[in-house]
Design a protein around this nucleic acid. Structure first.
Lengths: 128, 128
DNA sequence: TTGAGTGCAAACTATTTGCAACTGG
DNA sequence: CCAGTTGCAAATAGTTTGCACTCAA
């Protein structure tokens, strides 16, 4: 079903770029970063690998209202805080299980597999 | 600052279409619906008005991982359940305030204005 | 009358894809 | 060698925008 996979330097560097990024990068940002090491890298390859890595669960997508996909190399359970001023996305680890379960009990006619929580507001830099 | 606004039948029908839709429609779906009443409606007008109505807070955008904007005419506080089989989005009203506040207390260096919760899973039709 | 709103088409942006060349196993 | 992967460019898909025309106020 799923095609076998081979090593590729491009894929390795793309994964590394997402994992080590200090922000949640877009495909374009990953492209620019990896291109410093692999100058003839193509954007198509970046997209192909980001999708592949997402399917494999090695990274995940974050979609905000601007319709641009951003990628997250943090595979631990966590939530996001989105600053409405600078647009940056911050990871937060919260033990939300018990609270979410409590909410889930109120939901009928739907089987919940997973959930997502996003907080919108302002980061420290943009507050004040 | 904000330009004054005039009545337009297009805008009225577009708002009505979003409000009465049984699903959370895409711009394309709104276009098809309203076109039954206003045959020479243009897609550009639909996009312009959906953006305008969103800015006014009369409807809201829902963005999933497929990067297609869907619109929600329900302006009450509520959350979404997304069926991973059929892709449909269901509204759920939950009193999550106390729980969310509890979570919010764990968050540092970020001022929360609002939040969003999405549940992924399977709807009644797609379960089984 | 006049500027907000529209229809139409062209322009944009993000992403995907076809294909020949390349490469890891 | 051979199928997975790449680079490149062309193609999509969703959305935005410029412009002349229309219409609400």
């Amino acid at each position: 079903m799923t095609p076998p996979k081979r090593y590729s330097r491009q894929r390795e560097k793309i994964l590394e770029a997402v994992r080590t990024a200090t922000v949640h990068p877009t495909a374009e940002m990953v492209y620019e970063t990896v291109r410093e090491e692999i100058p003839n890298l193509s954007l198509g390859t970046v997209y192909r690998n980001l999708n592949l890595l997402t399917e494999e669960g090695k990274i995940s997508e974050v979609v905000l209202e601007d319709n641009i996909k951003r990628y997250d190399g943090n595979t631990d359970d966590h939530y996001h805080c989105i600053c409405e001023s600078c647009g940056r996305i911050f990871d937060v680890s919260l033990d939300a299980e018990p609270l979410v379960n409590e909410l889930a009990e109120q939901i009928r006619d739907f089987t919940i597999d997973s959930h997502k929580i996003e907080f919108y507001g302002h980061c420290e830099n943009c507050s004040e």
